[in-house]
């Protein structure tokens, strides 16, 4: 093995929390989220402040659900999409927590959990908080156009979700266990269209999933659920094709958070995207299902597009990344 690590001490997710915007709350996962905001501004003056407030609520919620207080958290691992990951860093400031900022674009949830699991597993830290989030309106104004500009979305585009999720990792306590992590390579198949993130990231997911099965000797049917982050409808279809070329057949146990995040009527073209998509589905839906033991073993593989507006404007292609973690229901 070289990209996959195994956690013999089985770090547990002892606390989790998800918070989403109103549009997200009206989607298929709506009833699973811990909190649905009534409006996107969340009582704040700007969308950036709203994103941070959402982030803070996710952090508070996860710590509370773990039965801890902020002072018992030994390290916070977090990241987001805004330039210089301000939502994460400012939240860490407000909670006065030791903090490592992590940027993995929309793969951040898996990256923080994988890094956190290693630290907890190694006994270096007792309780680690992992968090990420995204906001539609802050992402639009940073990456795309003003909200009030009258233009049309292209069919391959995705909708950055307004959502945040946080988890607390520890060896003590009860909860689903993280048993393995496969760290992915940066993969770039030369897609330059910023409105087609799914196609840009699918090769990275294929690479990581292939490596994971290759190194562990497992096969897709060993998992109750294999779930990617925000490949969207098109990206998910491409991933299935790419893996089939490599001899791995994903069955009905495969799905994509972004693709299933909204209903057809919500008109989001290829589905949801953003750090918050996989973070809220993991902390809202998947962990709850694991706790109820309706799912036993999940391969969580969010993907991220490691681009910037500057690089895109200079015509560079979009590199993708993807990390996989294995989460098991644990116990008997």
């Amino acid at each position: 093995m070289n990209q996959t690590v195994e956690f013999r001490n089985r770090p547990k997710i002892i606390g989790s929390y998800s918070i989403v915007g109103p549009k997200e709350g009206a989607g298929p996962f709506g009833s699973y989220f811990d909190y649905v905001m009534k409006n996107d501004l969340f009582g704040e003056k700007t969308y950036e402040l709203a994103e941070r407030k959402m982030f803070e609520q996710a952090v508070t919620g996860a710590i509370e659900s773990a039965g801890l207080t902020a002072s018992q958290i030994n390290l916070m691992l977090a990241g987001d999409l805004l330039n210089q990951i301000i939502s994460s860093s400012f939240t860490a400031r407000d909670f006065s927590l030791p903090y490592l900022g992590i940027f993995g674009a929309c793969s951040t949830m898996a990256e923080t959990l994988a890094v956190g699991a290693m630290m907890v597993n190694g006994g270096h830290f007792g309780n680690i908080l992992c968090a990420t989030g995204s906001h539609f309106s802050t992402a639009e104004r940073q990456f795309r156009f003003p909200l009030e500009l009258g233009n049309q979305r292209v069919p391959t585009s995705q909708w950055t979700v307004t959502a945040a999720g946080a988890s607390v990792l520890s060896l003590e306590g009860k909860g689903p266990e993280i048993t393995m992590a496969t760290f992915g390579k940066v993969v770039d198949f030369g897609i330059v269209d910023v409105n087609n993130m799914g196609a840009a990231m699918a090769p990275a997911a294929a690479e990581t999933i292939f490596t994971h099965f290759n190194e562990t000797g497992r096969k897709p049917t060993d998992y109750d659920l294999i779930v990617t982050g925000d490949l969207g409808k098109l990206g998910a279809e491409i991933l299935v094709d790419l893996l089939e070329d490599k001899g791995i057949k994903l069955g009905p146990n495969y799905s994509d958070c972004g693709h299933s995040y909204f209903t057809r009527e919500q008109d989001t073209m290829c589905g949801g995207s953003g750090c918050g998509a996989s973070a809220s589905v993991l902390n809202g839906y998947i962990i709850k299902k694991l706790k109820k033991r309706e799912l036993k073993r999940v391969l969580f593989v969010p993907t991220g597009a490691l681009m910037s507006t500057t690089a895109s404007q200079q015509g560079e292609s979009i590199p993708g990344i993807s990390h996989a973690i294995v989460i098991e229901a644990g116990g008997k």
């Binding site: 156009f145 003003p146 909200l147 009030e148 500009l149 009258g150 233009n151 049309q152 979305r153």
Partner: peptide
Amino acid sequence: YDKIGKFAGGGSIVPITGFSNSISSPAIE
């Protein structure tokens, strides 16, 4: 205006009103 634009595309971008929208929307944003 953005709702008109979502519906009409070029229909509300090409007229001078689209020019006005393209100045007003970032100013407000």
